[in-house]
Design a protein around this nucleic acid. Structure first.
Lengths: 210, 210
DNA sequence: ATAATATATCACCATTTGGTGATATATTAT
DNA sequence: ATAATATATCACCAAATGGTGATATATTAT
């Protein structure tokens, strides 16, 4: 019954590498990045820590590999092909994007930790995540909203910056605090609905000027 | 020349306590909360760590005492007495409050760390900071904006939640990243001015409905 | 089957970290 | 001046943590 394919081997470098990467994600979800200790990662991966040094050069290499392995912003790249037309200057697209981000970040705890991490540690791989987000955003701004808003292009960008960063903070806050924020329960459907309405409202008003 | 007043004593419990509290603030500013190690705190304070246990019961007690010693939200309580009248339903007051927060958090690195910390660690003293902010906000909402916006009171709250949390995130982001956010340089006067204009714009539009 | 190599484990070390008992010195009380 | 107390330091420990050389076992090549 012995397999000869690499998939069935008892010793499998690629699978072991993946176990380490999975362990990082698991710990990130449960304990946050402060829990990413060398020994704990190895224990969760079910492998000897020595392999972590062999395969990734150590903890830092593993963590960088983990972050690189994730495509956190794939969802804003219009992956589902259902993006509205842009004849409206990107109004519907922007609203759709903001609502989708609000929901996506809410559900994706790993992304929440990565966003937080990027506010704390100066790690190249984390900067790349932020840079990737900027580049994705640049696509929307430069090709759609900047032309539409003309001399007020930066005002739209500023509104977007406030809303996107607000979405990040509120989703993270909701995940780690039982408190309300401005009296709104960000975990309840009604509280989240209020935020969604406000997002739509603000974008509509921003576009109403033009 | 020997002083007999407590201020001049070589050994002074209160001064030593304060040295520990100051050390926490200093480390928070420079290294962030991950740098708050027992030995390092004692070294920065210039005292033996044993005293930390004697006076505060340990690291956690010291940190809690530090957080309690700060009144992070004093600035939103209309401390300078220059708050505009509220005959406008709090419109001018809200704008002034948001702009002031944007500037205050930008300059106050300790508050930035505390805000971040509150998104990561479940510490009672940190929850108290969030709770205090909520209570301060409740004053504004319940007595001024809720009556003004009537059935749409929650929409104003949601707009405020997005803007305040956006302010937090952007200020923290600006402090730890050299990147732009939505293409705006949040460290430059022009970038910050764009955000300020957007804040004013959004509040104006929110009030324009009523 | 045997040798060579890749994969994985183990035992062990140095350093860092949190924590404490014993002790010394300054201050205060008698 | 002396004793009692408060303040501060020191030496030391145990546990946690990051890191590595030696070794064992599975897999592959000859």
């Amino acid at each position: 019954m012995k397999e000869k394919t690499s998939a069935g081997k008892v010793r499998n470098k690629e699978k072991s590498k993946q176990k380490f990467l999975d362990a990082v994600g698991k710990i990130l979800n449960t304990k946050g990045f402060a829990g990413l200790k060398v020994n704990d990662i190895a224990q969760v991966a079910g492998l000897d820590k020595k392999l972590m040094y062999s395969y990734f050069g150590g903890r830092d290499g593993l963590i960088d590999a983990y972050i690189r392995s994730k495509d956190f912003w794939s969802n804003v790249k219009d992956g589902d092909g259902t993006s509205p037309a842009i004849a409206d200057g990107g109004q519907a697209f922007t609203k759709s994007m903001l609502l989708s981000q609000f929901d996506y970040v809410h559900k994706n705890k790993e992304l929440q930790k990565i966003l937080l991490w990027g506010l704390i540690e100066n790690r190249k791989a984390l900067k790349n995540v932020a840079e990737e987000r900027e580049q994705n955003g640049a696509l929307l701004f430069e090709s759609i909203t900047d032309p539409h808003f003309g001399e007020h292009a930066n005002r739209f960008r500023a509104v977007a910056a406030l809303l996107i960063s607000g979405i990040y903070y509120l989703d993270i806050y909701a995940n780690t605090n039982d408190f309300t924020f401005c009296g709104l329960d960000l975990k309840s459907p009604s509280g989240r609905s209020e935020i969604e309405q406000a997002l739509n409202f603000i974008i509509d008003k921003t576009y109403a000027e033009h």
